[in-house]
Nucleic acid binder design. Sequence first.
DNA 1: ACAGTATTTGGCAATATTGCCAAATAGGCA
DNA 2: TGCCTATTTGGCAATATTGCCAAATACTGT
Lengths: 108, 108
Amino acid sequence: MNNKIDAKYFEMTRISKALAHPTRMFIVDKLNEKKYCVHELTEMIGADTSTVSKHLSVLKNSGIISDEKRGNCVYYNLECTCVLNIFSCVMNVIQTNLQSAIELVDNS
Amino acid sequence: MNNKIDAKYFEMTRISKALAHPTRMFIVDKLNEKKYCVHELTEMIGADTSTVSKHLSVLKNSGIISDEKRGNCVYYNLECTCVLNIFSCVMNVIQTNLQSAIELVDNS
DNA sequence: ACAGTATTTGGCAATATTGCCAAATAGGCA
DNA sequence: TGCCTATTTGGCAATATTGCCAAATACTGT
């Protein structure tokens, strides 16, 4: 795998890396409902504000969400709802695995 | 975020974590063509066999791919093609970001 | 059984991610 | 201006991921 190909796939991991944390998955799920600001999310998540802020920063840098300042608060918005495909994909994987397990039991 | 909710989102990161590496993205992309065995993939990737084997193990444990022994070789198969949605999602994110940048320039 | 090829596993050092605290920055309001 | 709330950033310790080497395991063919 040469450098160019590696760069291509590295670019692609921007999305998967951004989603590779429970808190960030939670945030994406919540932002699919409506816009939330940092302290609202922080309260729901129950971590330090700075921690949540950094998670939001990761999602923003990957291009999945955007921010918008309203007075004292910063509201975050889900830009790419396509990432929600991951959610259904997870269900798909779980079901596929269960199906394999069932067939294994049936054939024994 | 209580333990139960955290467990839910942690479960969901099984997929995103598995895809959060360029080599594993490459493998998924390749397996979408056809089944490949470890030494074929190793040759394409250009890393140590053990390294590739461990990447395959990560993908397998997440349920994305499955393995099948044929004689001396172990062939891997893409079980959940839905993960390919990530690929188009990446393009989507890139385009969305470009669009925002263009609007920013136009309005200045 | 033996040699050769294919793959996995254990171990370890290098690197990356995470989460908290403290401090800095920014806006609202008296 | 000064105080309060909201958010971000720097720093650091704890943890997780990664990649190579060496060794173990498994199968093929002689």
